[in-house]
Amino acid sequence: MPILLLGRVDITGNLVITESIRVAEDEAVISAHVEDFVQADRNAWAADFDTEDHHAAIEHAYDTYVCDGDGNGPDLIDTTTGRRIPAGATAR
């Protein structure tokens, strides 16, 4: 079952993950979660990852949406675990 990560992009450009939900592989279920979340915050961000666990989903989110290769991009902040992955770091 996919992991749906929900969060927002903060004022400095960091991707802040605020929720992690294991969801059924059903596009309607995922869309319902995302729509409710996005309506509450215009800076909302959401993505689902077909991974085994939250940690792997965070790694994929960092690699896909944050890592820019030169170390000058934003950070990924996972408020569900207290983990921060700085720009240019290796997520693993």
Rank of each mutant, 00 (worst) to 15 (best):
P2R: 08
P2Y: 01
P2A: 06
P2S: 00
I3Y: 05
I3G: 00
L4H: 01
G7W: 04
R8A: 11
R8I: 09
D10H: 02
D10V: 06
I11M: 13
I11A: 11
T12W: 11
N14A: 14
L15K: 03
L15E: 01
V16Y: 08
V16C: 10
I17G: 04
T18W: 13
E19C: 12
S20H: 07
I21D: 10
I21P: 11
E25T: 00
E25G: 00
E25S: 00
E25Y: 00
D26Q: 07
E27T: 10
A28I: 05
I30T: 02
I30N: 01
I30E: 05
S31V: 05
S31M: 05
A32Q: 12
H33D: 04
H33P: 11
V34M: 04
V34C: 05
V34Y: 01
E35K: 04
E35W: 01
D36S: 15
F37R: 03
V38E: 15
V38T: 11
A40M: 14
A40C: 12
D41W: 14
R42D: 15
R42K: 06
A44S: 11
A44C: 06
W45Y: 15
W45C: 08
W45K: 10
W45H: 13
W45T: 10
A46F: 07
A46W: 11
F49W: 13
T51Y: 07
E52T: 13
E52Y: 08
E52F: 08
D53G: 09
H54T: 02
H54L: 05
H54V: 03
H55E: 15
H55N: 13
A56Q: 08
A57M: 03
I58L: 14
E59C: 13
H60Q: 14
H60M: 11
D63C: 10
T64W: 14
V66Y: 01
G69D: 05
D70P: 11
D70S: 13
G71M: 12
N72V: 13
N72M: 12
N72L: 15
G73D: 07
G73N: 12
P74G: 07
P74Q: 04
D75F: 10
D75M: 08
I77M: 04
D78V: 02
T81Y: 03
T81S: 05
T81A: 03
G82A: 01
R83W: 01
I85E: 04
P86T: 14
A87W: 06
A89N: 12
A91N: 11
